[in-house]
Design a protein around this nucleic acid. Sequence first.
DNA 1: TTGTACGCGTTATCAG
DNA 2: CTGATAACGCGTACAA
Lengths: 341, 341
Amino acid sequence: MKKHATLKDIAKALNISTATVSRALTDRLDVNPKTKQLVQEEAKRQNYKPNPIALRLQNKRSKTIGLVIPELRTGFFPNVISGIQKVLMEHDYQLIITASDESAELEEKNLKLLESNMVEGIIMSVTREGENSNYYQRIIDSGVPIVFFNRFCSNVVASKVIIDDYKMAFFATEHLIYNKFEKIIHFSGPNNLSVTKKRKQGFLDAMKKHQKQITDNSVITTGVLSKKGYTAMKSLINKNEIPDAIFCFNDPIAFGALKAIKEAGLSCPNDIALVGFSETEVAQLIDPPLTSIEQPTYEIGETAAKLLLDQILISPTPEVETVCLSAKFNIRKSSVNLKNS
Amino acid sequence: MKKHATLKDIAKALNISTATVSRALTDRLDVNPKTKQLVQEEAKRQNYKPNPIALRLQNKRSKTIGLVIPELRTGFFPNVISGIQKVLMEHDYQLIITASDESAELEEKNLKLLESNMVEGIIMSVTREGENSNYYQRIIDSGVPIVFFNRFCSNVVASKVIIDDYKMAFFATEHLIYNKFEKIIHFSGPNNLSVTKKRKQGFLDAMKKHQKQITDNSVITTGVLSKKGYTAMKSLINKNEIPDAIFCFNDPIAFGALKAIKEAGLSCPNDIALVGFSETEVAQLIDPPLTSIEQPTYEIGETAAKLLLDQILISPTPEVETVCLSAKFNIRKSSVNLKNS
DNA sequence: TTGTACGCGTTATCAG
DNA sequence: CTGATAACGCGTACAA
């Protein structure tokens, strides 16, 4: 690795002090225009670039923030990252991305890693709520702010960026009811997530509002991966407990269910209608196109990053703020009742 | 932000010198076991963590490598990133991720950003080949190694991680020929990418080998996004130049083509068979499931990171190495000739 | 075994 | 207007 030019190199070449060079390059007023010109030329000649590490050491700022997410495979998080990156780059901040693979232990390890890298703040979507919440609180108390998005921790006081899961779940369920589906059920997410609870509650309340019957089998716990949707659907088919319509926790669950439906020789939406959640672009590509809730992923990232930088750069006393962004309900063929019209 | 404990703090608390503290904590032999014990206890008490920035400054290493990719939306790159992260974390290296949005100008800006962050090496998949190749070479010459993956630059001497695009394209085409499709064409990628050339050549050579007729219309240039596949297919249908089978540059192109096929009331594979490339998990979810080439994304990331770290940590004289990983050909319903058998 | 002093690259402060 | 010096946190050669 070739040595990078430093202030000293320029100073030596021009027979002046590093202090003057520094001043000339930061375009200060109190420096002879002629010297300034000379320095700037020499700097360009030597391809001088200020060493960000020296700056960070001096300013006692790592200029780094950390990201902790459950996974990187589905389309959701990469888009969020794009939004975060944009805001951070504008402020000359770096991002350390860590994925927890849906494991609470790995999540803790990731947080430790971020701490030892002296991040000035953390953006995170928790893996399993409650598991590490004491640790989150300790980090915040130590002066490193955390902003949660998507999956948060209700017993930790911190800023959050979310969408109105309850409302969207309510809408989705009502949409199925208005489409005259009778036996409507919900494939629910992992039990320990607040989004799971909110979407479930939205479903239940919509059912109640329209006096739909709710049984023990109205809500079936699945998970986040398509495999879970597949097995859940298959098991229903085997037991011959076939619903008219399913509101699924997310798109992958709906994809899995769809696969099982097709394999059983059934059709969507004729036999079983489906609604997903937090769609990626895929939803419109499959057959039938999947009705789904579209989250403003990029904007979520932007907002979380802004909230965090505000806390870091402007307000030293963390003001907790919850931003609720609006999602979009995209109605497609998978949830339209063809018998009814 | 609460102040982080430093060596000085510990030294002061124990009334000894920072040097001794430093030695005690790095577990050196030449230090009194009793002092060592005391220091380590005090360090734990104050929750001491070595300041990585000070270390980087002292060692003159940024311990950071940069990543430049065309986009972050499709599933391909996030998986590669996972692989890169894993290797880098093991070596205590950080990753700065930049996306170029398929723009050569933004790519140049990203490279500048990485340079000013003093990355020790760069992993990249180029946006448009040739456009910035002089710059790549200049970076390498300045002592910062680059490892390319997926999309590289033929006129830059650097390590690469690729798959055998030619061979896989050849296989895919032969597969269509063996399935007794007659009029087979290729939806080709962006003109200025070497992967485009290789996949096209694989297609052409397989066609030649089996004495299939090649006309001016056998290869149609599309792009990387599904929209392009859609319009290309639609235009063929409008002109009534309908092929039996299409080998598509990538999965999104195939998805787009499929959409146009369905809209025209045609069926896949009955009327038009499709083969994609570099699949994400989606390929198996659509209807019909798409025959496609599966790249070892995670492994690509791992390999690229290893190659780069080797150059940085071990071999100062960059030995150029090209690693070709093997992809998997997944045959599904979209390319099986039902009339034949 | 321990302490002192220096350097990594930069800027701020204080003299000149 | 410019130069010398200290400081950021760490490790280490050298001196004690």
